[in-house]
Amino acid sequence: MTLSLTNTAKTYADGTRALRSTNLDVAQGEIISLLGPSGCGKSTLLRIIAGLETPDEGAKLLFNGEDFTQIPVEKRKVGMVFQSYALFPNMSVRGNIGYGLKMQKLSKTEINTRVDEVIELCRLEPYATRSITALSGGQRQRVALARAFAPRPRLLLLDEPLSALDAALRGQLRDELAQLLRSFGITAIFVTHDQDEAMAIADRVAVMSHGEITQIGTPEALYRAPKSEFVARFIGAAMPLGRHIQADTMYFETSTLKLPAPAAGKTAFVRAEDVRLDDNSPLRAKVMSVTFLGTHYRIALEGLAPDPVFALHSALSAPKVGDTVGVAIDPAAILMLPAEKKAA
């Protein structure tokens, strides 16, 4: 086990609990994503690992069995990519990338060799001598990554590394970042609020909510077997389904659906891609709205749950608003989750 956090919590001076007691184990070479809405404690956890925040008493941070809880940030040998990149405007691209090596008191030739190596790896050759202010957002992001990676850190930490970019560039750089991190072969933890980003880059995703890790697992596991309503809603936008469940039957306003197993007392969720329009199905719903999205229609349906349920409909035409349509849902695609107490 490379990195191991035990009982890590953070309470701010004003009493705000940013992070509840958290345990996390990260294996060598693994890429972990901390995913959650803003204010869920993901950045706080990352900053504690970096040494930029002090955890509450009782926390224990181990790296290969060695306790580094009390080691200050400059001695932790962690690379950090900041949301704003925090590149030094008084230095060139080379100067930024070489700064960490200079702090390790390496010789000039060693620094130059390593800087060249990293510049090539991150494909920054054309910009090496430029000043930071002459770079685009995407180039700055690569320089920030190169700078964090150059001193051969034990751990690479990335705080929302793509959120400062515009949407079009973000998709492209997401794949590039995933590929670069793999080629580095480094243990990395990155924070994001974007589930696509987390799924595309990480080996395992830790979903966080209200200062806690609610579930951690591979992207597939989180998507297919969420353990809580929050994870189901956050990953893949699952929607509650049905009025109520009795034994193995789910009741809707006008019809019922047989479930594979008794599920009384549980809450059912379904994703838009598992809701199909099928005229032969006895399950009926009323069309509330139709949105054309190019590859498919997104249709809001009334009558399947207290809230509208969306269906993704791939066809050349769509029903009209107000039509009553048949809906087919594969019972196996329905996620059965323990009912959560509604917040008052």
Partner: peptide
Amino acid sequence: IDLKTLEEGAASLGAPSHR
């Protein structure tokens, strides 16, 4: 300038406070 983040960046690269 965002001094705090710039300094955090330098610290994460191993720079002690006087550097």
